[in-house]
């Protein structure tokens, strides 16, 4: 039997921008995904503190949300972002990787609704949260 996690990992890691960010898919479930991004000096937003730029956090959250949609049993194929809102709670601690977890909590024939959270080593205090709507393609 084909390992679904392995297949999803290969798919996510084949996306050029995911590779540029060094993203690793660590878990895929039914409408759930977890992706992690190692600390990288190229992604620094504030050179004085070494904190990762919010834009890079948006990119990993967007990828994680998309992966959660594609892993949903009712989603037949690809997806694209319709809208995504990111709330930034605090700066990510420099030197730590960022882990994201997304859940596709509702899906219709055309639209998937997703929520996601990004954390660093301090998993109790989120760095950012996201909520968005995604297309459901390939029906």
């Amino acid at each position: 039997m084909v390992n679904k996690t392995e297949l999803a990992r290969q798919f996510i890691e084949a996306i050029p921008h995911s590779r540029a960010l060094g993203l690793t898919l660590t878990h895929i479930g039914e409408g759930e995904a977890e992706i992690s991004m190692p600390y990288n000096q190229q992604l620094i937003g504030d050179p004085r503190t070494g904190v990762i730029h919010g834009g890079a956090v948006s990119a990993i959250l967007d990828t994680c949300c998309g992966a959660a949609v594609m892993s949903h049993p009712s989603a037949p194929g690809a997806t694209a972002t319709i809208d995504l809102r990111i709330d930034y709670m605090r700066a990510a601690t420099p030197g730590q990787s960022i882990k994201t977890r997304a859940t596709c909590y509702h899906i219709t024939r055309n639209v998937a609704f997703v929520r996601a959270t990004a954390t660093d080593d301090d998993a109790d205090h989120p760095v950012a949260t996201a909520s968005g709507a995604f297309t459901v393609e390939g029906r």
Binding site: A14, I15, P16, H17, S18, R19, A20, H53, G54, G55, A56, S58, A59, I60, L61, D62, T63, G66, A78, A80, T81, L84, I86
Partner: peptide, 21 residues
């Protein structure tokens, strides 16, 4: 490296968000 969908191809949604921000 800004591509998010190699089949279309299209810019990554996260890149678009980051560019706007």
């Amino acid at each position: 490296k800004l591509i998010g969908n190699p089949l279309l191809p299209a810019l990554h949604g996260g890149v678009t968000a980051a560019f706007l921000e």
